[in-house]
Write a protein that binds this DNA or RNA. Structure first.
Lengths: 198, 198, 198, 198
DNA sequence: GGCTAAGCGAGACGGTACGTCCCGTCTTAGG
DNA sequence: CCTAAGACGGGACGTACCGTCTCGCTTAGCC
């Protein structure tokens, strides 16, 4: 029974250059921060990365896909949220910090990506999987912990609660009808939590 | 004191063609429905409208501005919300209908515009003024009526309440992590209103 | 009877820029002389001419077509060949000078164009009409004059005679098996004319 | 003292694959016939031959060199021209057949190669050595035989005579101003030979 | 009626980015 | 040392779109 488990067999041919991959994502991310998705052309990326344009399109379908990848690669990994105090407090903090994050460079870029992918289900899905869902998972967990700790009334749907806490921040930020500041975040948390605490 | 009261003085030169204006907005809106803002080029619009491209740019600064105008022109006017029952019920209905509207063609277009205007404060502002703020005003009014009727506890900030009700729908729709259906809308309303009713 | 002769009516729209046309041909010719057809990219031409690449391709189908046009435009017009002495002498001179011309810059370019157009019947035809045929016409005329003057025996087909005089130069130049110098030209003329003189 | 006189020493390492060589030339020739030198990319050749591109460039410097080699390999060897009758007749026949050959597939390819090698002295030289010169040698020999047989007047330079007979066919074929048919070939031969026969 | 002023259709223009193509080289693993 | 596979840098290609411009024509009010 030779070659049974056939371990990760290297494909034939010259292997993909890890250096090129990283240089591309590095360059793309730098350009992303500097001027956004639209202001960086594919030539710019290839030049900045010291890479042929063909190499770009060999591995990514569009410029946008590169940008998404670059963004995801660069993000700080999702850490099991550490906050002092109770799970409920952690949740509160998480929301308030979310308001800040939206104004950070990464926050702005993330929003830009969401907007850019509005018409592109594939990239939207990727964004979801690689960026949003892991972070949302954290929040869901916090909610569940708070429920388990008896800080939230039972029977609350975590999904809805998380959306209720997060959505309004996002909404204000994108529409722009009112500021997304700490006060708003705190007031919102207060309002919503009133509904799910005793 | 000549020309004092002389009311709306017609400017010299050939007057602007109302036909061209309408044809442009009509064509732009049709293209907007068909394929979105990006898939329609300015040439497409001018051709579809039977109008010179110069005429487009004489009256609008960018393609996007045309699209926004076309969208606003076509929208049903904001009517003083008529709903059966109490103001609170009207608010409930309004939110649930909002979830439907997001999936309508106009809803999708509106979202597209918001995304397209992410980096353009001017158009974003225009969109706000001509589209969102009037509709938001309605909701604010409903909240105030409900408060006046004693259906909501006093001291509630209508702005936050409206965002809490609307934001999550918008959020889900754009991120796409979960459906924006009637059930979600109703559950959300239930949750949020629990916080602001006795 | 209005609009009867309908003289050269200017077409609607912005007229083609003569300046751009000339700048393009000028630049193309310069590049042609400098490095040949292959070494000049369409970007090079457009940059050197201070013209958009779109303008290039609006008027010419391919880079090669531009080059051909540039070459034809630049050539000295075909003058009624003035040579001292008899028509036969003029013919002799014409052939000998042809050997020199082949080595000139224009000669080399012409040969390059012929080679480049080998697979392109359209451009080949254009080259024929705009470049070769007019010049060949001159030679044909010389032959006829010589015949009329009794310097060549009657019944000679001018077409064949011209090919017999010109072809071998061209042949040697392109194949490169032997030099195309004055001596060869003179010897060839001597040989061929022996057949058509008494 | 090992390896002393043992001359034809097989080099170390895996020997060159004859199969690959033949497959490449075979494939190249097929592509040459089908679409010419330009329409076949090096990838095409390697794919068609089932061979790695590296193998191509290990043995040939450029795509054109492969094509030339493929062409030469496929050509019928140069046979000591067998024709009925006198050497002069053989020469006549040779020219007339040359006109036909130009229109054959091999003829067209040969012309294509000449054009492609216009700017490449090295390949031009190779083409000369491997293709043209051997065939020209035959014609030179025929001329000399005819002279020896007294069919041509003495003192005729065979080089010039051959060019005079061949060049015009080539000329017409490449420029395309007139057909290269049997009649032309025969008329040309008649004309030229008139000069070198008594 | 002629004059001035501006809008209009047509479409060419400069500029910029796109994604594809091909060449000849390089990097693996395997024969 | 050769080969297959195929990624790589470089660079040209021709297309698409944007927003501007240049024409000649039209439509008005004013003299």
């Amino acid at each position: 029974m030779p070659n049974a488990g056939s371990p990760p067999r290297r494909p034939p041919g010259r292997p993909r250059s890890e250096g090129a991959r990283r240089a591309i994502l590095e360059a793309a991310y730098a350009l992303l921060r500097k001027g956004g998705i639209a202001s960086a052309s594919s030539d710019d990326i290839s030049k900045a990365a010291g890479v042929s344009k063909a190499t770009l399109y060999r591995w990514w379908k569009t410029k946008e896909a590169i940008m998404l990848d670059a963004f995801c690669e660069k993000l700080t990994p999702v850490l099991p949220y550490e906050a002092k105090g109770s799970p409920l407090n952690a949740l509160r903090q998480n929301v308030v910090r979310g308001a800040d994050w939206l104004h950070s460079e990464d926050g702005r870029i993330a929003m830009r990506l969401i907007c850019d992918f509005y018409e592109d289900p594939k990239l939207r899905q990727l964004f979801l999987e690689h960026f949003y869902l892991p972070r949302r998972g954290l929040q869901i967990r916090l909610v569940k912990q708070a429920m388990a700790a008896g800080e939230l009334v039972g029977g609350t749907d975590p999904e809805i609660l998380v959306d209720a806490l997060q959505g309004p921040l996002f909404f204000r930020f994108l529409i722009g009808h009112a500021p997304v500041d700490k006060k708003f975040a705190r007031d919102l948390v207060e309002l919503v939590l009133k509904a799910v605490t005793a």
